[in-house]
Amino acid sequence: MAHSIVDSSDTDLEQERYLRDATHHFRGIEKPLKYGPTIETLNDLITALHKEFDTNYVNIEMVNHIMLSYKSHPREWKRFAKFDRFKYTRNLVDAGNGKFNLMILCWGEGHGSAIHDHADSHCFMKMLKGDLQETRYEMPCSKAIEMPNVDIGEVNGDSDEEQEFEREQLNVVGSTTITVNDVAYINDNLGLHRVENPSHIDTAVSLHLYCPPFNECSVFHKNSGKRIKCPVTFWSKYGVRQAESKK
Results as ranks from 00 to 15, higher is better:
residue 193 H to V: 01
residue 109 E to I: 15
residue 239 G to R: 10
residue 234 F to Q: 13
residue 16 E to V: 05
residue 228 I to W: 00
residue 225 G to Y: 01
residue 216 E to W: 12
residue 83 F to M: 07
residue 157 G to L: 09
residue 163 Q to M: 14
residue 143 K to F: 00
residue 243 A to C: 12
residue 179 T to K: 15
residue 153 G to E: 03
residue 157 G to E: 00
residue 7 D to I: 06
residue 164 E to I: 00
residue 192 L to W: 01
residue 111 H to E: 08
residue 150 V to I: 10
residue 244 E to L: 14
residue 107 W to K: 03
residue 168 E to Y: 07
residue 224 S to D: 02
residue 172 V to E: 11
residue 161 E to Y: 09
residue 159 S to L: 01
residue 5 I to W: 04
residue 8 S to N: 10
residue 243 A to N: 03
residue 138 E to Q: 14
residue 151 D to L: 07
residue 99 K to S: 08
residue 108 G to R: 01
residue 4 S to V: 09
residue 242 Q to S: 13
residue 8 S to L: 11
residue 168 E to T: 09
residue 152 I to V: 11
residue 73 H to I: 12
residue 119 A to N: 08
residue 74 P to C: 10
residue 108 G to F: 05
residue 101 N to Q: 13
residue 159 S to W: 09
residue 113 S to I: 01
residue 85 R to C: 13
residue 159 S to K: 13
residue 216 E to P: 03
residue 161 E to V: 15
residue 91 N to V: 04
residue 118 H to C: 05
residue 143 K to T: 06
residue 18 Y to I: 02
residue 122 H to M: 15
residue 58 V to P: 02
residue 152 I to S: 11
residue 100 F to N: 06
residue 24 H to L: 15
residue 42 L to Y: 09
residue 147 M to N: 12
residue 147 M to D: 09
residue 145 I to E: 00
residue 171 N to T: 10
residue 18 Y to V: 07
residue 69 S to I: 10
residue 160 D to T: 12
residue 55 T to M: 09
residue 147 M to G: 08
residue 88 Y to C: 03
residue 94 D to W: 15
residue 12 D to A: 06
residue 69 S to H: 10
residue 42 L to K: 08
residue 54 D to G: 15
